[in-house]
Amino acid sequence: MPMAAAPPLPDDLDAPPHWAEGGGIEVLPRIFEDAITLAVLRRPLSSDLLAGALAQMRAKRPLSFSWRGAPGDALRADLLATLHAPGVSGPLVEDIATLAEAMAFLFDTDSVGLRLRVLDAPMCPRFHCDNLPVRLVTTYLGPGSEWLPETAVNRDGLGAPRPDKPPIVTEDGAIRRLEAGDVALLKGSGWVGNETRGLVHRSPALEAGQPRLLMSIDPA
């Protein structure tokens, strides 16, 4: 995967950071550290990859691709058969397949569940944590997912909204956002030992005419 330099995320003042970020693939296995609930590979997107992503956004039929199985040639073939403008989408297909294979290798699984969608509205607009062990997310175009440092979360506010629930965000200006191209592993409450510390995150708000191309991968 390409390397990219990026400014470090600021540390919280009251606790060690529970996230790791960097421009090399070696940052992703840090998700196995007990203290880490977010690992982010910062990377730029090549012009060829962006061309394939833009082709998905410009098509009249919204893209919604779901797939489960062993990553490899079958995934590549299904992507090429489904994506719009397959003639320019080869680099996008290869990037998706590479990330799926990396996910399977990292979590020692034979299969993964993958979703690739063009979204024109927030999918999960309320802050929440996933009830699963881990998920890979990357946004190819549009704003990235938003997340909260643990020191800015009131977990009593999570779950279905009710009038008596407190606000989830406890610090003004605490909300962080992933950038387009970033590859992030989000640890959920289904990770053994992390039941009360799943990363709190949400989908970003989208302006009119600002769609988003999002991919997620789960170990299956």
Rank of each mutant, 00 (worst) to 15 (best):
R58L: 05
L63K: 01
G72C: 04
R61S: 04
M57I: 15
D73R: 06
A55F: 05
R68I: 04
P71H: 12
D78A: 12
A51P: 04
P71V: 08
K60G: 04
A77L: 00
A51Q: 12
Q56M: 09
A74R: 12
P44F: 05
A59L: 01
S64E: 10
F65R: 13
A55N: 07
G69C: 13
D78R: 10
L54R: 12
P71M: 08
G72M: 01
S64A: 14
R58W: 01
A55Y: 03
R68V: 02
P62I: 02
R58H: 06
A70K: 08
R58Q: 08
R42Y: 02
S64R: 11
R58K: 08
D73C: 01
D73H: 06
M57L: 15
A70I: 05
A59E: 06
S64K: 06
A74W: 00
M57Y: 02
P44I: 08
A55I: 06
P62H: 03
A77M: 00
P62R: 04
L49F: 14
D73E: 13
S47G: 07
S47R: 14
L45Y: 08
R42E: 02
D78M: 03
A70T: 12
R61T: 07
A59H: 08
P44T: 14
S47L: 12
L49S: 15
L75W: 07
R42L: 02
D73G: 04
G72F: 03
Q56S: 11
W67C: 10
S66R: 14
A59G: 07
K60I: 02
S64D: 12
D78G: 01
A77C: 00
A70G: 12
A70W: 05
P62Y: 03
R61N: 05
A53P: 13
L63H: 01
S66P: 03
G69M: 13
R76H: 07
P44Y: 04
S47K: 11
G69R: 07
L50K: 06
L63N: 01
L54N: 07
A77K: 00
L45N: 12
Q56C: 10
L50F: 01
A70E: 15
R43A: 10
S64N: 10
L49V: 15
D73P: 04
A55K: 05
S46K: 07
K60V: 03
G72N: 04
A53E: 14
A77Q: 02
P44S: 14
A55P: 10
A77V: 00
M57Q: 09
S64P: 01
P44Q: 11
S47T: 13
L49P: 14
A51W: 01
S66A: 14
L49W: 14
W67D: 11
D48P: 15
S66C: 13
R61Q: 09
G52C: 09
G69P: 10
W67V: 10
L49Y: 11
P62N: 05
A70M: 11
F65D: 13
L54S: 05
D48R: 15
P44R: 13
P44D: 10
D78F: 00
G52H: 02
R43Q: 12
P71A: 07
P62K: 07
R61C: 01
D78S: 07
A55S: 11
M57A: 11
L63Q: 00
D73L: 06
